[in-house]
Design a binder for these strands. Structure first.
Lengths: 140, 140
DNA sequence: GTGGGTGCAAAGACTTTGCAAGACG
DNA sequence: CGTCTTGCAAAGTCTTTGCACCCAC
């Protein structure tokens, strides 16, 4: 995915979000990674590169980015909260052994009247669990 | 869903799981409820009815039931871990406002060769987020 | 300049674990 | 009877919050 500071500034302005080096760094990192990092993982990556970044700021930044619609949470069975910068509906495969989460390209069976019965659907995603190729090979 | 102590005893025996009043009570409760209770919620319900039940036991029981294949975790955006006694693949709708989780009957677009690329799929579920009817009416 | 953002430390929510006592098979 | 389970309390993990200082606008 592409990251542009200019676009980030524009969208942030629309949402009334101040642009700080920390916010740019966190968002840029999520966008550029294909995995779906948690706050802790983002902090570990950024603490060397960015002068002023704390774990607290990462948590607060993620919360702001989520409220402003820049990122979404990824459904998991638990552990920590993970974030995704891809906003279009898509699926995730979660390895039960190593915890890795990779995207799956599927068209979701949503928007039937069945769903309308339930309430107003804002987002949908398919979640699959199993053992990834790497972990399966390891076992053998 | 139906609950039978006899069947529970049989399956538990197969899995090498001892049958205790606490385990019967926790499993019976999950099976009989249509929501997808967390450990805390189960404990709150059971502590009045069952003599010897602690929150710790509920946690440990859920872990045992999960390992033995009696229940599954429900994918969520976070909060606490929730459990489901329905084992067949199905979808969930999660209300972002009140946190309620209800089942959705859908056929999932799984088992394409697309998924096989990723690894071995054990389970799949569709997760939808939004605002449930009750919460939407409340707002109005 | 001023309101929002940041860092640190402390608190909070949820879950797991150690150990002694008790129950299932 | 031996082994697995329970309960209590304590520890552990992930996340949020209070407060003083600082920066983007």
């Amino acid at each position: 995915m592409e990251f542009s500071v200019k676009k980030f500034r524009e969208r942030a302005k629309e949402m009334g979000l101040k642009v700080t080096p920390q916010r740019i760094a966190v968002y840029r990192e999520i966008v550029s990674r294909k995995d779906h990092p948690s706050a802790e993982e983002l902090y570990e990556t950024l603490k060397g590169k960015i002068e002023g970044i704390s774990l607290t700021t990462v948590y607060r930044t993620l919360s702001s980015l989520e409220k402003a619609g820049f990122v979404k949470r990824v459904p998991t069975l638990k552990d920590k909260v993970r974030y995704d910068a891809r906003l279009e509906p898509h699926g995730h495969f979660i390895c039960k052994k190593c915890g890795k989460i990779v995207d799956i390209e599927v068209t979701l069976p949503v928007s039937s009247e069945l769903l309308r019965d339930v309430g107003e659907i804002k987002e949908c995603s398919l979640v699959c669990y199993g053992i990834c190729k790497e972990c399966r090979n390891e076992k053998a």
